[in-house]
């Protein structure tokens, strides 16, 4: 039986994000977390391979302790095991530091055939972690995948490219990132939902991963945010009257303020 590891992320529910004023990173502990929507297709792809060829599917997530309910919900979708990778030392990691952490966690879970991730997260929106993690593990990465076929023991990815659609055959193990658009994702199972209280994720801290503190967290992140500008919102219903020219000027001013115009 082969093994697929799906890396998922909890992201702040849009509109509830708070940025730490000192470090300019997200205060993840205080946010209301939802499953990163692009991870849902990634889970679905892994579960379809489980249905088809009996792969074991493990879901792992790097995040704070308030990720546990989300991991339980992922268990309800049908995965075989859930892991939380959590340690104060991981907080503030940029994509390189995150990839180091995930790469180490994945090596602890090897051997595996496939690592599946969503193409990007809706908070950072970099899409960098899958290829970075793959490179650190010296594995091929196949991005923007719409579908994974498993035929005669071989993996074929149908992926979107800038100039068209590719059918790529690749060896395992490999890291695959899945596009957010998919025809169908399954709902959770009622049987699993009813027994959720008894399910807890296995926890991996830096004690198990044993990473050098200089390579993780804020200190391990070469990219640093030095400043943030928050967009302010005008309250509804502000009405302006005047000549077309001055009103148009006002609109341009508002649009620039909000970043819709350069």
């Amino acid at each position: 039986m082969g093994r697929i590891v799906v890396c998922i992320k909890g992201v702040p529910k849009p509109g509830t994000v708070k940025v730490d004023e000192e470090t300019h990173t997200l205060r993840r502990e205080s946010a209301e977390l939802i499953l990163n929507p692009p991870d849902r297709p990634a889970l679905e792809v892994a579960l379809r391979l489980k249905d088809q060829a009996n792969f074991e599917v493990i879901a792992i997530s790097m995040g704070p302790p308030n990720m546990v309910p989300l991991l339980q919900k992922v268990y309800a979708l049908g995965v075989d095991d859930i892991y939380l990778i959590s340690d104060r030392a991981f907080a503030g990691s940029d994509t390189l530091a995150t990839s180091r952490i995930l790469a180490r966690a994945l090596s602890l879970l090897s051997p595996f055939d496939l690592v599946v991730m969503g193409a990007r997260s809706i908070d950072g929106e970099t899409g960098q972690v899958p290829p970075e993690t793959a490179s650190l593990l010296n594995l091929p990465s196949i991005t923007y995948v719409k579908e994974i076929r498993f035929v005669d023991g071989k993996f074929i990815a149908i992926r979107e490219d800038d100039f068209g659609e590719e059918e790529v055959e690749f060896p395992s193990p490999a890291v695959v990132s899945i596009v957010p658009e998919i025809d169908y994702v399954r709902p959770p199972s009622l049987k699993r939902l009813l027994s959720l209280k008894e399910i807890t994720p296995k926890i991996l801290t830096n004690a198990e991963l044993n990473l050098d503190e200089a390579s993780i967290g804020l200190s391990g992140s070469p990219t640093q945010v030095v400043d943030v500008f928050e967009k302010t919102f005008v309250s509804r219903g502000e009405i302006f009257e005047g000549e077309p020219d001055e009103l148009a000027e006002k609109l341009i001013e508002v649009l620039k303020e909000k970043g819709f115009l350069a």
Partner: peptide, 22 residues
């Protein structure tokens, strides 16, 4: 582009360099 977003992270990881997106 999709290609840029796929290759740049691999290069950055190999060079242990920071990579900013978009």
């Amino acid at each position: 582009t999709k290609k840029g977003l796929s290759v740049a992270p691999r290069v950055a990881a190999s060079l242990q360099a920071g990579l900013c997106a978009h």
